[in-house]
Design a binder for these strands. Sequence first.
DNA 1: TTCTTAAATTGACAGGTGTCGATATTGCTG
DNA 2: CAGCAATATCGACACCTGTCAATTTAAGAA
Lengths: 123, 123
Amino acid sequence: MPTTPLTLSDPHPASAARRTSCSSRDTTLHLTADEADRFAALSKTLGHPVRVQIVDLLSRYGGDVCVCDIERHFDLTQPTISHHLKVLREAGLIDAEQRGLWIYYQLRPGTLDGLRDWLDHLK
Amino acid sequence: MPTTPLTLSDPHPASAARRTSCSSRDTTLHLTADEADRFAALSKTLGHPVRVQIVDLLSRYGGDVCVCDIERHFDLTQPTISHHLKVLREAGLIDAEQRGLWIYYQLRPGTLDGLRDWLDHLK
DNA sequence: TTCTTAAATTGACAGGTGTCGATATTGCTG
DNA sequence: CAGCAATATCGACACCTGTCAATTTAAGAA
């Protein structure tokens, strides 16, 4: 029987003076789960180069941009572009408006504000 | 035989005055493929709430944070946290430094600058 | 009403992602 | 050296993603 009991349950015993110790800082999370989920979802939406280009295009050409003006820039089929637009729409980043046969897209203002602010204040 | 030939090949004929037309703006992409790829890759890396929290934690606690101080905040197994750290490492967002048995992580400065600037100048 | 065109939807498929349990690696300690 | 503790890696598996061809939907135009 050992004279000193095994302290298997405590990974950072203050009593273990011999140990170099990992300093074990008393960190706490400062983002809520909801904030982290939201930032992650928005980031994921921007996680494809075609969607990055579409967002950039809509940003630069302000008003409304027709789907056919988006499609022409990419070497992808029409359903694939339509899929990326749907991903952006469902994330709340862009809005669609139908005029006649055509559908125009525009950036929805404000959606990226939270993510942008978080990135701006990092480090 | 029709007197007016079918113009199947031209989706936006200037001659079709009767047509409302989608205005067909002369848009061009302003991001290079490399920039879009880079922003997308970084965004993808931030596309998981656990990685968002890890980045935020490392940002707030400046210096070095031990893996065990990261793990305690999540209800996930050690290999899963290790996986997320690897994803962040391989994207160049964080750096690891071993001291004794422990491994300390820190945010690598500058990696997110391009993405941040892009977001800042959107719209 | 029928035709045409723009865009969305569907279904399929290959490849990627997140998670875990099990195992390996590495460094300290006795 | 042997044992232990912190972290990484491996292998498996369910689920998600990007892409395309085929089809559908919806809005003019004839």
